[in-house]
Nucleic acid binder design. Structure first.
Lengths: 127, 127
DNA sequence: CTAACATATGAACAGATGTTCATATGTTTT
DNA sequence: AAAACATATGAACATCTGTTCATATGTTAG
């Protein structure tokens, strides 16, 4: 037993294999982690972030959002669909127009934390 | 003044233009919003989320992470670079090995809120 | 210095993503 | 019913993203 698979050598040498055995069972299901990444993917687009910010202020129809963000109605509609599927916005129909609003308080928290993070790390004003 | 550009008709008709004027000035700089989206983009990948989760437990070297997630050392290293650029992890060298750890408490908060969100919306256990 | 090892990085490729364009759906008005 | 309007959606296209492969960098041991 002089040698094993080359790929596995490190795990036995470079640090503590007992950590691996401790951490592994603590990991959430693959599916949960996948869903979580999918959720953040939704936040990870400028257009969608801008839409969410706009909706912080008040509910709004597709056309207003498009006007406000200076984008196509189609583009906004596509993005709203994604936001809705992620349960970040909800919609309400009133005649011809459809109003969108934030669906969830987590949106504010998550975005707030994100903002705090970048202001702390990026935009250091003083020492 | 019977008609204007077709594209702008909606904004004057479908809802309240005064909202547009109220909301527009409340929007953060384009640059801030861009940075925010960039940050969430970093969270929006399964591999990186898994890395962050692993680091919840303890600091760890590249090789251990690769082993734990059953991925290439190269792939992990690439992702760690992205996480580091986003100030989500920091690294410390000890001889040949480099240890990575969470750089920020916002990471825990953001991921926590994300988890809460999906558990609430997705994984409804009962009515 | 050289060998061995842990990590980093550049190029390339496949797959995912956002916008546009054309058009469909659904609602109100006449 | 038809016209007008707000919104939704499918296909196509260009761009971005993550992994792999090969190799470079940096550190320690001999």
């Amino acid at each position: 037993m002089a040698k094993r698979d080359h790929a596995e050598v490190c795990a036995e040498v470079c640090t503590h294999p007992e950590i691996l055995e401790k951490v592994a069972p603590e990991m959430p299901d693959e599916e949960r982690l996948y869903d979580l990444a999918e959720l953040f993917k939704v936040f990870g687009d400028t257009t969608r972030i801008r839409i969410l910010y706009v909706l912080f202020e008040s509910e709004m129809c597709v056309c207003d959002i498009a006007e406000l963000l200076n984008m196509t109605q189609s583009a906004i509609s596509h993005q709203l669909r994604i936001l809705k599927q992620a349960h970040l916005v909800r919609s309400r129909r009133d005649g011809k127009t459809v109003f969108y609003a934030l669906d969830d308080d987590h949106v504010r928290t998550v975005i707030g934390q994100g903002m705090e993070h970048i202001e702390e790390k990026h935009g250091r004003r003083k020492a």
